[in-house]
Amino acid sequence: MSENIAQLEIKALTSGYGEIQVLWGIDVGISAGETVCIIGSNGVGKSTLLRTISGIVKLTGGSITLDGVSLNNATPEDVLSAGIVHVPEGRRLFSAMSVRDNLLMGAYLRKDKSAIQDDLEYVYHMFPILAERRRQDAGTLSGGEQQMCAIGRGVMGRPRYLMIDELSLGLAPRAVDLLFEALHNINQSGVAILLVEQDVMNALEFADRAFVVDQGKIIVSGNADEVAANPLVQEAYMGVV
């Protein structure tokens, strides 16, 4: 990648929780408008990677830069202002708040009131069921609807990079299709997408490029179809013997 392409660049990243080191030197780059997926078994540090990028977990080494500007010491607020939005694992909606209020929380840092209203309509258009349920507590939504709400809440932050942790976990196939389609549309509008996903088949089909994480390191990376053809990946993650 040449230096002047707008991108989120992660180099030799290490981080963890106190004494426990989880990431052991991660290198990942995502260009503007691209789709990238990160796959790996349970507990290898995928969520930790996203949490470190969004500034909830402090990095202990390496670097995170966006368009050449360091985000190493950025707070979650700075990261969000820079255009990186993190839709966390487990959706983490504000369960006793209405759907609409959850969506508005996604726009918490924004001051452009009329554009916020437009984006609200955009999300309702993308997920009509949320428009129907706008006054309902988010906790009363079905799993798929909650994930729609979580992604909608992310979109309300006007991301340039949208990071989603476990899109499809525990959801019915129909809901998963709908969500992937929505992600595709969001990407078409110019938003780069970084997807962490258990459903390796769907993820590799969706993304341009893929990274495989194991024990806090990237062990395979490349174009999604290359990664899909990699025997190691087929055996370990796609159940091909």
């Binding site: 909830i56 993190h86 966390p88 909606l93 504000f94 708040m97 840092l109 932050g157």
Partner: peptide, 15 residues
């Protein structure tokens, strides 16, 4: 209210 319900999620919203 968001902080009351989920501190970390609120942090992710820039709170």
């Amino acid at each position: 209210v968001a902080v009351r319900m989920d501190r970390e999620a609120a942090t992710l919203m820039g709170v």
